[in-house]
Design a protein around this nucleic acid. Sequence first.
DNA 1: ATTAGGG
DNA 2: CCCTAAT
Length: 660
Amino acid sequence: MVFKKRLDYGFNAFNVHDVPRAPRSMRRRSQSKCTVEESQFCAFEMLASLAGKLLQESESSASGNASEGHECDSIGKNCFKQEIQYEDKPLKPKCFEQGRCEASVAASELTTENGDDSKDFRCAKNNAILECTLTKTDPACSEEINGDLKYGSFPGNVDGHSPYFGESYNGKTENAFKQERDPTGLETQALNIANKGPPKDPVNFDRVVKLLSRRDPVPSVPFTRRRNDIKLGSRDDEENFSRLKRLSKRFKASRPPTHIGDRRIRKLLTSKYWKVAAKLKDFEHSRFGGKRPLYCKRKTYYNYHRCQYDMLYKQRKIFDRKSVTSSPEKDMNGDKCSTAAMSDRVKFSIKSFRIPELYIEVPETATVGSLKRTVMEAVTALIGGGIRVGLLLQGKKVRDDSRALSQAGISCDDNLDALGFTLEPGPAKAPPTMCSEEPPLLLSYDAALQNLTSSLAAPAVNTGIPNCTPNLPFLTNSENPATDHEPVSSKIDMPTDQSLLESRALVPVPVPATNVEALTAVAVNQKFQKSELAQRRIWRPFSISEVEALVQAVEEIGTGRWRDIKLRAFESADHRTYVNLKDKWKTLVHTAKISLQQRRGDPVPQELLDRVLVAHAYWAQHQAKKQQSKLHHHRHGTPSITDTTEADRKGVARVPIGTM
DNA sequence: ATTAGGG
DNA sequence: CCCTAAT
């Protein structure tokens, strides 16, 4: 097997997060020209045609086209990148059925003289990223196979928040076999992929492919809310969820019946329980200079782990003969490999780790404190119950415990970078074998849940917080997180104002005693346990500025036209639906009516509340008038002179300041 | 798809 | 914030 180092063709280093996005209006326009469904096929057509093209090329120029290796450069307009990663299997189609396989394809400037291709490109472009996940359940061990295809256009239209772009990540693949831009391999893979999901059989295809397109998450004013990229990684982080929702709606027609629509999901979720997406924010991203792909596909990602709590690991070379414990600060830069090469000792330091998901159940009435405690307990139960460390070399699991490091090929060489660790629940806590017919997606999910809930159920696991740390010495990260961060963090974990505030609710609950950087826990609905994915939208308090905007909009537009209000004032606030606005208005009116003492939460400026009352009264009256005129119209068949509907629509009507 | 109103 | 009924 040949391990190819990742090639950096310029755009690999490209920080997608920096890409400015086209104005919303633009994106919108283009989007409308190409429906998601279209693009679904477009994407594959594109892929297929590309594969064909490549095949052609290789056939016609078997002797080795000089430009082949530089297709990106020489052809310029055709830049195609593919990355195949898998853990255990060599490069062959079989990887779709064994182990896991992740492939990402990024097409850039895919414009060819071929008309169809152009169209495809356009579609792909309009949908910045399409992600397709092929899943298959292995009946034997409920192991899921995933092939992820990602299409991205480049440049200029890169979804600035598509962490996928150019890279894929399955949590363990850092060192996984990678193949990129290998004409031969590319061809093979592309064909494989294309064959897997032939456009010819959309239905069938749809059955195995979950496609989601990521829409641009970056809103503009007002309420600019730069989406916290991290959120992409969070389970649906809500935002994702809502985006998915929108998408799924559009997909409806082509979706297989088995697809669990968000609508249905929601119905299953009672307000009794909240499901909290448990996840760790991916600080890795920032930590590693953004080079590490975001942990962005939680659900599918999951599949890879069979409920193992795969932690992140990152070792650094250290050359200290004395101990194996960590002293990271010093070795951060110390690549003194050469000097230490003489040493026969290798020192590892685990930089960080994370727990992908954690599910706990907690009644709505639980206090914040108890929630934290519960999370702590869950974590403790999870890892405190005994965990195993897995060793990955070049993405492959090294199982032979008796082998010497040198034998295993682990030495003070560059290959230390290819070394990884996983943390898995110990045998005792290993989740029961899952052999279910449930969608793969839910499989590990369930398992995780069971695992956890059962742990929680056990009273034995009480506030073992102090025990946690001692039990996991190797988990202890003595680094100072602050200094530890490379000169990177900014954009990603520094959401702007609003974002910061709003995401706070989602932000992981730090668990003090452990090294867990961040953790979010969620309560789950019983039904959810039964493998229904559901999520309640997180609570996002309206900020003053939002309230202000809302009031303003209502003043101008009036109540009862929430869609217009949404469009006018919250166009770019993806997380605010017209229902939200309506609800907010409702509460605002209520708040305005009650006494100051009865109000809770962040106080809304009285001035605004006053305006709320005025506007409310005005529009109530206005509506009444309209009703009257309608009645009048019906009775006498004469148009009412007082009908101001038209004016309203144009935003002419307003609450006269000082009215009332 | 929106709106209105109850929970 | 959710859900449902009615538009």
